[in-house]
Every structure is written in C-alpha cells, then in structure tokens.
C-alpha cells in the first residue's frame, strides 16, 4: 500500500510542480496569451464536453484510428511479402528508402489537389506517413528470422502460410511492434497537420480557428486535448504490447539478469 503511494507520488510529482509553477507565473504576471490553470480547466470542460466532442474530437480520432490501422495492417502484410522474398527486397528497397526520406507533410498539397479536402485524403496521408516504420521494421524482423528456427519449421513440415503464422510473424513481433510504436505519433502529427491545412472539422482545424479568433484559452485547451489523446494512445499501445510480447520481455529480463 505504501509502495503504491510512493509510485503514484513519483508519477504525479513533476506534473504537479509544473502546474504550480505555471499557476504562479500566470498569477504574478498575467498574459493575454497564456491562461491560468483554472481558466484552462473551465474552458476545457466548456469547449470540449458538448457538441464539439462529436463534431471535432471523434472525427479526428476516427481519421487517426482508421489511418493508423490501415498503415499497420498494410505495413505488416507488405513487409512480410518483401521480407520473405530476396528479389522483391532488392527491387523495392531503393524506392522505400526514397519515400521514407520524404517528409510526409509535403504530400498534403499534392493529395489535396488529387483528392480534394475529404476525409479519405486525410486518412490516406496518415497511412502514407505512418506505414514506413511498420513496413521497414517488418521487413527487417522477417529477414532476421533465426536460421535454426527456420530449419526446425522445415524439418517438421511447417511451411507456407503456416510457417508465417507459427514462426515468422511471432518471431518478428518485437520488431514489428517497435515499428508500430514509432508510427503512432507520426499518425497523430499527420492527423493534426492535415486538418490544419484543409478541413471544416477536427482538432487541428479547431485549434487554428481559435487562434485566428484570438480565443486563446480555447486554443490552449485544444492542445490539451491532443496531449491527452497522445497519452491515451501510448497507454493503450503499452498495454497491448505487454500482452503480445510477454514472452519477449520475460526472456530479456532473464538475459539481463544473467
């Protein structure tokens, strides 16, 4: 019980200190551009717990969710295909390197012309940006399959799709999930940027709107919403990853202890 309190104290200590500092700073020298913590909380609740929840927050989350899920699934499937085929790897590698090096936001103007300011354009840009870490990590993870494991599969007649399912995919899972971890914040960033560029709803759109109307506390509260979403996404990912890779973390702990 005492231990739990200590852990909680450590986790909440720094946030508490920062909030107090912010409160002192904004009370001592008030600024039009920075609200006090109290103001922000009030504005946050007023702004977002109403119609905006349905009009702005949920559509944003939906775009992000759909985009990231497509990116993950497509990245894993394509990565398996390329990773298991040496010729395909040699064929695609330079192209992948090029696209990965391209900063994804520069594609927004192009896609805007091609698809117009639609939801699918935003989903598409999220996919286009978030797929790379998953794809490249999957290729690497598949390629690095242990030769002894592969021979074991072969000697027991485990081949084709069964080998992918029983050996290749699980053995590449740690690396694939490392790719997913990177792709989530990228997806979130592209969600906001694409909405800032062209939209009539969504978080990115709202934050820009508030800024243009000098609704400063509202603008800040939008940033808070984004921060909370990012935090929640990371927490969900950590939970899922812990579950899928229980064996991997156990193995690593043992190796580190030895």
């Amino acid at each position: 019980m005492k231990k739990a309190f200590v852990t909680l104290g450590f986790a909440l200590g720094l946030p508490a200190i920062l909030v107090v500092l912010w409160w002192i700073a904004t009370t001592v020298s008030p600024s039009f551009f920075v609200p006090t913590p109290g103001e922000l909380i009030v504005t946050f609740v007023e702004t977002w717990f109403g119609p905006r929840l349905w009009v702005d927050i949920l559509p944003s989350i939906a775009r992000f969710g759909i985009g990231v899920v497509i990116a993950i699934v497509a990245g894993i499937l394509l990565g398996m295909l390329v990773g298991l085929n040496r010729d395909l790897r040699a064929f695609t590698e330079p192209v992948f390197e090029f696209f990965r090096a391209l900063p994804p936001p520069v594609l927004i103007p192009v896609l805007l012309l091609l698809f117009g300011p639609t939801d699918w354009m935003k989903v598409f840009i999220i996919v286009l940006a978030a797929i790379w870490p998953v794809l490249l990590n999957t290729i690497e993870g598949v390629r690095a399959a242990d030769p002894v494991q592969t021979e074991t599969s072969r000697s027991y007649g485990i081949s084709g799709l069964n080998r992918v399912r029983y050996q290749v995919l699980p053995s590449a899972a740690p690396q694939i999930l490392a790719g997913v971890r990177q792709s989530l914040p990228i997806g979130l960033i592209l969600m906001v940027i694409s909405e800032m560029f062209s939209s009539s709803s969504g978080l990115g759109f709202s934050i820009i709107q508030f800024q243009r109307r000098f609704a400063i506390p509202e603008m800040w509260s939008g940033i808070l919403v984004l921060g909370l979403i990012g935090f929640a996404v990371a927490a969900v990912f950590r939970y899922v990853e812990r579950r899928i890779l229980r064996w991997y973390h156990g193995l690593k702990e043992l190796e580190n202890a030895a």
């Binding site: 242990d146 002894v148 494991q149 021979e151 074991t152 029983y166 050996q167 699980p170 053995s171 899972a173 064996w247 991997y248 193995l251």
Partner: peptide, 11 residues
C-alpha cells in the same frame, strides 16, 4: 538440434 535455445520457439 544442438542449439535447443534457438530450436524451441520462445513465444
């Protein structure tokens, strides 16, 4: 195989 650690699937 000799390398039991790598022949068994750790997951």
């Amino acid at each position: 195989f000799q390398e039991y650690g790598r022949s068994l699937f750790p997951w």
